[in-house]
């Protein structure tokens, strides 16, 4: 028999997979290196020297703090809205059968299935038509729209694993709808919602395409970075901000991964 063959990995495949993964990760590692470079006029490699001074410079930049603050506030509110809408939708889809279920799941996925530019420009022209001025809330409106799907995907996956008879068992033991929600449903979908919420936060925190259309003059952190990318003026500060952004988005992703590890996977369709 050739059971040994199963476990032996062809060398070529190993190398190709390794090179592929390196291709995915090396550019991100480079970001970390550049945050410490002493060079501030060009993207010179290797860095002529290493320094920590740009961290202090960035720390004292009010525009970075302002953009960061706006991003955090937008992401928090959008996540809260997405958690509410996504959970409601997932519960309705999973717990009942009704006409039009398919259409509703399609509707939830649409904002990320369509290119972001379409979502952005339609919201912008709708704001124009309705004469709604750009504000904090126009950004939130756009972000919550495409964040619903990550919460929804995580919640639906968990609802699917939840034994249908658990809810009946709870009602059988005397718990009404609200008590069943509190004592049975919530504890069982809690980690999925937490994971979905973290992913929604990461998604909103990083979003730039829709935001350019709904932000007006305000700058979220990605908008701030985009301006730096188009017209580099503060290379060292941008380097530091880029590194911090990588770290800040890694944490919720890792947390979400460990929260959903037993069984369902984080939906990769989030972006």
């Amino acid at each position: 028999m050739r059971s040994d063959r199963q476990n032996r990995t062809p060398m070529g495949l190993k190398i190709a997979a390794g090179v592929g993964l390196a291709f995915l990760h090396l550019p991100l590692l480079l970001i970390f290196l550049y945050a410490f470079t002493t060079e501030d006029k060009s993207y010179q490699f290797p860095p002529p020297g290493l320094t920590l001074k740009w961290f202090a410079v960035t720390w004292n930049r009010p525009d970075v703090w302002e953009a960061l603050g706006l991003s955090v506030r937008v992401a928090s509110i959008s996540t809260a809205v997405a958690l509410t809408l996504g959970t409601l939708c997932a519960a309705a889809i999973s717990q009942t059968r009704f006409f039009g279920r398919e259409a509703i799941s399609l509707l939830v996925i649409l904002p990320i299935a369509l290119p972001g530019i379409i979502t952005g420009i339609s919201l912008r022209s709708a704001f124009n038509l309705a004469e709604i001025p750009f504000s904090f809330w126009t950004i939130v409106l756009g972000h919550a729209t495409f964040c619903v799907v990550v919460v929804y995907n995580n919640a639906v996956a968990r609802f699917r694993r939840l034994q249908g008879s658990l809810i009946e068992a709870s009602m059988d033991l005397g718990a009404d709808g609200f008590q069943t929600f509190r004592h049975v449903i919530l504890p069982n979908i809690g980690t999925a919602l937490l994971a979905g919420g973290m992913l929604a936060f990461a998604l909103s925190f990083d979003e730039v395409i829709v935001t350019t259309f709904t932000a007006g003059q305000q700058a979220t952190l990605p908008i701030w970075m985009l301006e730096e990318l188009v017209r580099p003026r503060q290379r060292p500060v941008t380097n530091v901000v880029a590194m911090v952004v990588v770290l800040v988005t890694f944490l919720p992703i890792l947390a979400a991964y460990y929260l959903t590890q037993d069984g369902d996977q984080i939906s990769g369709q989030g972006k």
Partner: peptide, 9 residues
């Protein structure tokens, strides 16, 4: 991780 890390970065 690369999938979810910042698009702009």
């Amino acid at each position: 991780l690369p999938l979810w890390s910042s698009y702009l970065v």
